[in-house]
Simulated scan of single mutants.
Amino acid sequence: MTTINIQKWVGGSHFEYASVEAPKLKIGERLVKMHVAAVCGSDRHTVSGRRPGACPSVLGHEGVGTVVMGPDVEKRVVFSVTSVCGQCTNCARGLTAKCERVMKVGHESFEGEWPLSGTYASHIVLPEGVTVVEVPDSVSDEVASIAGCSVATVMAAVEAVGTIAGRDVFVNGLGMLGLVAVAVAKSRGASRVFAYDPFETRMEQAFLLGAQPIKPGEEVDVSLEFSGSAAGVSSAISVLGIGGTAVLAGSVAPDGTIDVDPEWMVRGWRTIKGVHNYEPRHLQDAVDFLSTVELPWDTLLSGPIALEDLPEEFAHPHPGLRTLVRITAPSD
């Protein structure tokens, strides 16, 4: 039997490092040996109490590893954040991200039907409803580890806009998703890319990727909002020009409400969309993007740390936008 080492979150800032035996897989399930996991901001929100989470649980939903049992054995893969049924009304509509029976990687109770759902472990069990995408050799473990949340979500947000080429784009909130969005907009031929974040270092990173500050009175065709703050959402909407579209992707935890003038929306043919999670094609888009575009990963990613050091990371975070957890090497 395979022994699996886990960091089990037991509430507050407390974790328990433990070893368990791998379960017998069901039809269609995969056992993936993790190489690298990434510490996403939403996990920090769960641990801090800002957003609810199943407890106890194995957190972590970004990562890359090798399939050791089940379909696609020996392939190095990334995986979606959702496990979907493929049969409900929303799945039939092509909105699997909102599956009526969705389960989520790194969000399920350790005492429930999917205890080994998170990436903060030596292995993760992936149900049949989780999309997996093979990672080419040209993409390192470190870079691939953020595909399944950060990059794929950006791909869904950008698709919701329609055409980017030749349009002015504003990216608000320059965490990992926002900076990736700047790079995606530039790579897809945006006329100009404006960006804003209250942290000066993040603005500097965006400028290095080709963004520029937005000036008072500037109007744009596209706004991509990743900060999740009510003030940020208001800003992203307020800069829309005639026919502009705002996509909100950062508002995944409560942060108050905003006022929107419906007459201004109607007379200006403006559109507001929300994007949460993503579809399988967006995960493939993410891997394709990472295989063709080089970003300053040394400044964006921190670590790696060992799995045993994860509790300390939550107590005293590294400065990068994503701290990586090196769990095993592909040859181990």
Rank of each mutant, 00 (worst) to 15 (best):
S13P: 00
E21Q: 15
A22W: 04
L25D: 13
R30F: 11
M34Q: 14
H35R: 13
S42H: 08
S48H: 12
G53T: 02
A54Y: 04
H61S: 05
V64G: 06
G65Y: 09
R93C: 01
C99W: 01
E100K: 05
R101Q: 15
M103Q: 11
H107W: 02
E108A: 05
E111I: 01
E113S: 14
P115Y: 03
I124D: 07
L126N: 04
G129T: 00
V130K: 01
T131G: 07
T131W: 03
E142L: 01
S145E: 08
C149P: 04
A157W: 01
V161L: 11
T163Y: 00
I164G: 07
A165D: 13
N172W: 00
G173Y: 03
L179F: 03
V180Q: 00
S187P: 09
S191T: 09
F194S: 02
A195I: 00
L208Q: 13
L208K: 12
G210Q: 04
V220A: 03
V239H: 08
G244T: 09
A246W: 03
V252T: 14
A253F: 12
D261Q: 03
P262F: 02
T271E: 13
G274V: 06
Y278N: 06
Y278E: 03
D288P: 12
D288F: 01
S291W: 05
E294Y: 00
P296M: 12
L301A: 09
L301F: 13
G303P: 14
P304H: 12
L310K: 12
A315G: 05
A315M: 13
P317A: 04
G320I: 13
L321E: 15
T323H: 08
V325R: 08
R326A: 15
P330Q: 12
D332H: 02
